[in-house]
Amino acid sequence: MNSCEGTSIAERKFRKELNAGTVSLVLLALLAREQRPLYGYEIARLLAWISDDEPLVKQGALYPVLRGLSAAGLLRSFVEPSVAGPPRRYYEITDSGRRELKNWSHIWRKVTRLVDIVLIKEPVPPEEETTQ
């Protein structure tokens, strides 16, 4: 049951800090891509399906982020009754959400490019660099 088994405190802390902004970006991008209102459970399922068995965060962590994005005016939400089960709260991206998404994805690309360069690229020997 315990998902933290086998992960160190440092790893948990790193995940948490990394996820703090990433989840907002993912949710905003997902809602922009789908171009239709989605409800919380649907979003959780969609993300689980996309991420296979390596989910970004616990599904329960998505709801507070959705609420935060709505409070900031990047999403709008409304409740609709469902045929089976309880009423669902649907979320939809707003115009300012789309504008913000543009900025965020720009930042994201810059950050990932930088991280990739530092992380992936083979260290270039100094003499090789001077010949090029």
Partner: peptide, 15 residues
């Protein structure tokens, strides 16, 4: 708020 979210999610999973 937390109870509302959990209840909505769990019931959606049930259905």
């Amino acid at each position: 708020d937390a109870l509302y979210d959990a209840q909505e999610h769990l019931h959606a999973e049930m259905s």
